[in-house]
Design a protein around this nucleic acid. Structure first.
Length: 900
RNA sequence: GCUCGGGUGGCGGAAUGGCAGACGCGCUAGGUUGAGGGCCUAGUGACCGCUUUAGGUCGUGCGGGUUCGACUCCCGCCCCGAGCACCA
């Protein structure tokens, strides 16, 4: 909807809220100011004179960003411009920022996220969309609990304080949200439903408890999911070296969804390829075969628990080259396998030594150690007896924890076989037929022809793979299988500040889920934080002691809480029914509003949060809670803002420890939020990293002041110029050119904002348009056509600028005679007629080098253009004495004369 | 090793196969000012030339190729960044 022009200045002055100062006050302030700075000169004097002459009411020459910004922030709030009625989803646009953790203070790097999101939301509103932009808090988490241990302040108190501080910062940035939908994950009205979803997952077998070797963070005193351990074996959050511990823990069965999580990536056209590739890597699907190698029975007659050892391989084609088998040191049943044998002690020692290695040492490619178990297995393809080893290069977590070793065709097996002098046998020959064990210096891992593998010899190895797997299946000792790298998501945390896992342990009934009607399991507030880091829930009798919901006998509550990534895996549904105490998600609303149209956040969540949220959405779909299967239709990951550290001159992402944090507060005080926003968006392509440069902020400030001053200078006649007719047909060349430039700019800026968010080039285009505007001399006495185009252009500049610098745009929109809010105005439309040119400039090239340029009629035909080009003086000079071979004419662009 | 990005002035960065360096920062000169700041004007890739007239050569990590024409497409390298990685 667009606001029809209401009237000229009079109405504008009364409908647009004034800056709040009476003229008398301004006079006094100015006089005082001039006494202190008697030479301030022009600017102050001009304002003074203007006021005295009664020329202006409220507009100042100086750009009063402070007053404007607070005024409009208040206005947007008071008028509910970001409140959205979700009962209607016509032209819906769900624009979501990633759930922020309330750390307390935001820096300009965080700001990039909110500013991009706000610019998108404002643009979409002006395009007529029903935009939903909610905000909330990922409010559970360790930093608050660790702080409580140090300072004694309860995490809830510090968290709520941080939330209030961050809300103030977001407001100061001019970012608008539908605060009525705010959700806070640490409050019972939210975590009740996190617990409820846990119960639903439990009912479906997707939440389960098992004893497993898990990642233990000795600093944070809790277990971690695989996704929260960095490749170097340190904890993503605390930086501590992660240890392996056998513990009984809660998991979510995300592996059940591995294939769907992989397949559906293809549907996500609106996601960056990079993120999809990262998820694909993480899921790590590999196709291969599982083959059972029967154990050669023990000589002492004791039976083995399992008669065969299964192993997974992607290279079943090389199985005739298998000369030994290796088990992981943690292989279950290993002790029984070697019990009573002469190798028992050696194996036990080896397992202990390997267990002492850190995750890094174990998983870094390098020296491989192992020991013979004294046992043998049979290769089912050729009935050969091969030795069974234990080796530290075999991981229990991948495949079956057992590897068939083919040293001739696997680099790791090669190294191991060389070290322990194990036999090596060729089973793949290279295409040249030149492979020879005597001369080989490394494993041959490429393709070739299967050899010495009856009945498969002579087959190209790729073709042999399915045939050999089928053979195993037929004979009953194996089959083709798909293996994933993705493991189940470990969600237990031995910490206080999280959603309690709603489970009760009863000596009689065992593990009993808390009945739905008893939710939420509330976190007790009267707790003591101990320096040991132990969860206060462990020692809290009122919390722990509970009677079993089944039998009424005394039971004990689970004292672990859930990983905070559980909270953030479903919050985007909760925004749609944030205050609903009867259900987690209102299905009708979710079906109308989901998926999120645009999700905006940091690349650091490419795997963790985004994978978990996709899993939750699919699980919720399968439970019949929601229709959608993918939560985020379009994902935009903005690059980090870095800054050179004063300490070592290197570029880092902003962090307190590097001393390179830029706070928005001081910048907003000095330049205003609009300047900070404009600079943040102009700094570079938003998906890429960008280096913060304080000098660049000045440029943005200068530009906004320039726009302000144009409106100020012409404020006397601009609003009235609205009634002047605009007719490109009768314009003089200069206005015609400006008018064309205006519409070219609208076209370009709109294109830059649709799809890819090219804010940097969009802003550059507005700047160019302003430069063109300044080339037109204008005043109240200028011809009507000039004033009309000038006004039209300046007004468009204000509209085009408004998603980026909304406060100044609102203010100038008022000065141009419009009623607020500019958010309700229409985005400028391209006038095709304005783009038309009668004459175009064409570049003249000779052999691809620019030699001149000519003006030709826009509709000139090929022959006419060619003739004009060849007649050009410069072209003549360069083709003189040469033979013209070819003349290429690119209509409206250039002519290239090829000569020899 | 595999996968994905990227390499363009002093700097951040622009360029549906068609004028390389838009826009901004910085810098230089001039104007306004008592001065400073601010603002305005002009210039600003390198090299050569232009004392009246001005243009030329080179240039987008390196080497090839396709094309009338390549920052852009293809092939082979080098370097930087990110993710995964003793994954069988």
């Amino acid at each position: 909807m667009s606001w029809a022009c209401q009237s000229r200045r009079g109405v504008a002055a009364s409908t647009v809220p004034s800056l709040g100062s009476s003229r008398a006050v301004i006079f006094q302030a100015l006089e005082l100011f001039l006494q202190i700075f008697p030479s301030l000169g022009t600017m102050a004097t001009l304002v003074f004179q203007a006021l005295e002459n009664g020329e202006t009411d409220s507009m100042q020459e100086h750009y009063p960003f402070q007053a404007i910004e607070t005024k409009w922030q208040q206005y947007w709030e008071d008028h509910g411009l970001f409140a959205t009625d979700v009962s209607d989803a016509t032209d819906k646009y769900y624009c979501l920022m990633m759930f922020p953790y309330p750390s307390g203070t935001l820096h300009v790097g965080h700001g990039r996220n909110y500013i991009i999101g706000d610019a998108v939301a404002r643009y979409k509103k002006m395009r007529g969309c029903r935009v939903l932009t909610p905000m909330g808090w990922d409010a559970f988490g360790l930093p608050a609990e660790n702080a409580a241990i140090k300072t004694g302040t309860h995490p809830r108190e510090s968290t709520l304080n941080h939330i209030a501080a961050m809300k103030r910062q977001m407001r100061a940035w001019g970012c608008g949200y539908d605060w009525a939908r705010e959700v806070t994950s640490c409050e019972p009205d939210y975590y009740k439903w996190t617990q409820w979803l846990f119960l639903k997952l439990y009912e479906r077998g997707l939440a389960y408890k098992k004893e497993a070797a898990v990642n233990w963070d000795p600093v944070d005193q809790t277990v971690l999911a695989n996704e929260q351990v960095l490749p170097d074996g340190t904890a993503e959050r605390s930086g501590a070296r992660v240890e392996k511990k056998m513990l009984s823990q809660w998991f979510f069965k995300i592996t059940d969804y591995a294939q769907r999580l992989l397949d559906d990536l293809e549907k996500l056209d609106g996601w960056p390829e990079r993120v999809k590739a990262m998820q694909e890597n993480w899921i790590g699907r590999s196709e291969g075969a599982r083959i059972d190698f029967p154990l050669v029975p023990r000589t002492d007659g004791v039976a083995d628990r399992e008669p065969a050892i299964p192993c997974f391989t992607t290279r079943v084609d090389t199985i005739y080259g298998c000369t030994y088998m290796v088990l992981a040191p943690e292989y279950p049943g290993l002790t029984e396998l070697v019990a009573g044998s002469p190798q028992e002690a050696a194996v036990r020692d080896f397992v202990v030594t390997a267990g002492r290695l850190s995750a890094i040492e174990r998983t870094t490619e390098g020296d491989k150690n192992g020991v013979f178990t004294g046992r043998y297995v049979i290769n089912p393809y050729n009935q050969e007896r091969i030795p069974l080893w234990v080796g530290d290069y075999v991981l229990l977590e991948y495949g079956t924890g057992a590897v068939m070793a083919v040293p001739a065709h696997d680099t790791r097996d090669w190294a191991f076989a060389r070290k322990y002098d194990l036999p090596i046998r060729l089973s793949i020959q290279n295409p040249d037929g030149t492979l020879d064990l005597v001369t080989m210096e490394e494993a041959y891992v490429d393709d070739g022809v299967v050899v010495d593998s009856p009945p498969f010899s002579g087959e190209p190895n790729r073709e042999a793979i399915p045939k050999m797997a089928a053979y195993a299946e037929e004979k009953g000792f194996g089959r083709a299988v798909v293996q994933y790298r993705l493991r189940d998501w470990l969600i237990s945390r031995q910490r206080y500040w999280g959603a309690p896992i709603p489970i009760i342990y009863c000596d009689v009934c065992g593990l009993v889920p808390v009945p739905e009607e008893d939710l939420p399991v509330t976190l007790p507030m009267d707790v003591e934080f101990k320096p040991s880091g132990e969860s206060p829930l462990k020692q809290h009798p009122d919390f722990q002691q509970v009677s079993c919901p089944h039998c009424g006998q005394p039971g004990r509550r689970e004292s672990d809480t859930m990983d905070t990534f559980v909270d953030s895996s479903w919050y985007f549904f909760r925004y749609l029914s944030a205050r609903d105490d009867h259900q987690a998600v209102d299905r009708a609303r979710a079906d109308k509003w989901m998926p999120v149209d645009q999700y905006i956040g940091g690349i650091e969540h490419a795997i963790l949060h985004l994978m978990y949220a996709r899993f939750f959405t699919k699980a919720m779909h399968d439970m019949g809670l929601v229709d959608c299967e993918e939560p985020f239709a379009h994902l935009f990951t903005q690059g980090m803002i870095t800054k050179r550290s004063d300490q070592d001159g290197q570029l880092y992402k902003m962090s307190k420890s590097k001393g390179n944090v830029v706070s928005p507060d001081a910048l907003i005080a000095e330049y205003g939020a609009d300047t900070v926003r404009l600079y943040t968006l102009f700094i570079g392509p938003p998906e890429k990293e960008a280096e913060w440069n304080d000098a660049g902020v000045e440029g943005a400030y200068r530009f906004l002041r320039r726009v302000w001053r144009r409106v100020y200078l012409h404020r006397a006649w601009l609003p009235a110029a609205r009634d002047l007719p605009i007719d490109p047909g009768t314009m003089q060349p200069a206005e015609r050119a400006l008018y064309r430039k205006l519409h070219e700019s609208i076209q370009r800026i709109t294109r830059d904002l649709e799809g890819a968010f090219h804010f940097n080039t969009a802003i550059a285009q507005i700047m160019e348009l302003m430069n063109a505007l300044d080339d037109i001399p204008v005043s109240a006495d200028a011809p009507a056509a000039v004033r009309a185009v000038y006004r039209e252009t300046l007004e468009a500049v204000v509209l085009l600028l408004s998603p980026f610098a909304p406060h100044i745009a609102e203010e100038l929109w008022g000065e141009l005679g419009h009623a607020p809010s500019i958010l309700q105005a229409d985005w400028p439309a391209v006038n095709e007629a304005a783009l038309h040119r009668d004459e175009v400039e064409m570049v003249l090239q000779v052999n691809g080098k620019v030699r001149g340029r000519i003006q030709v009629a826009a509709d000139a035909d090929h022959a006419a253009v060619e003739e004009a080009a060849l007649a050009d003086k410069q072209v003549q000079k360069w083709i003189e004495g040469k033979t013209v071979r070819k003349v290429i004419v690119v209509p409206g662009k250039l002519v290239n004369v090829a000569v020899a």
